[in-house]
Amino acid sequence: MSHSTSEPLPDYRTQDPAVAARFAKIKERPVVLEIDRLGRQFPGEHGPVTALRDISLQIHRREFVCVIGPSGCGKSTLIRIIAGLDDPTSGRMLVDGKETSGPCPERGMVFQGYTLFPWLTVKRNVMFGLEMDGMSSAQAESEARQWIDLVGLRKFAENYPHQLSGGMKQRVAIARALAPNPRVLLMDEPFGALDAQTRAQMQSHLLEIWRNVDVTILFITHDLDEAILLADRIVVLKAHPGEIQEIIEVPVPRPRSLAQLQSPEFQATRRRLDELIHPKVHAPSDHLPIVRLTQIGDDVE
């Protein structure tokens, strides 16, 4: 918190003219994904439990939207419904203005657990979606090679997933999801299982890929910095029931890099997210009841 000492942080809604122009341009683009009053209830012991209520959202072409929220806010349910892996109990979903439901390659998905097919090589994994589409295997192979090049794994095209590191596996998963040319790429905490260093690397990889591909991204995370670093807009959900609390336009200019982490816009957005996600606890005595268990004379600290 280097900025807390000197001048006060700007308001997170204040946008640099360049950033404001960018948002104006995004809003002019056609809406790719529209969610209209989406709701999801699960049967519970004491009547139905509402996981999501009245979620409405419009995502424009080539926009990068992050969804964050406390655990139990239903962000995973939301992305699973959009992917078609779960059905909403109310509301509808439109892709390019057409109502749709069920899984479909126009909405590609990257899962936290990689879910690569372990019996297929990297190349065959990336070819999978293309072949499902009925493409001949020669054509699928040449297209798959381009996507593998894009994620920088040319040398590993003939390797099996178990021979790759976590970050490389997730790059294959991204290439595989992008290969059938989806309109929307859904990412469900894709970097959650990676160590901090690989995660930072993957974030810049993803921004790079997104710059080179015409795709709209909906990205779920619980990491606030990750959301600010990646997103144009951040959708903040609240729990019980899962509802949209606020949609924040990130004022940090692009191109983004980790160096912006200390910039005032970044810090202001970060503080706002903190307020939303971790509201002030009312009771001050929230310390853990820690009893000193170390031996007298133990002077490590």
Partner: peptide, 15 residues
């Protein structure tokens, strides 16, 4: 078989 593989295949268009 890991259900995640089925879901992944579904999102890739497998019938």
């Amino acid at each position: 078989v890991d259900g995640g593989l089925i879901e992944a295949a579904q999102t890739l268009g497998a019938k």
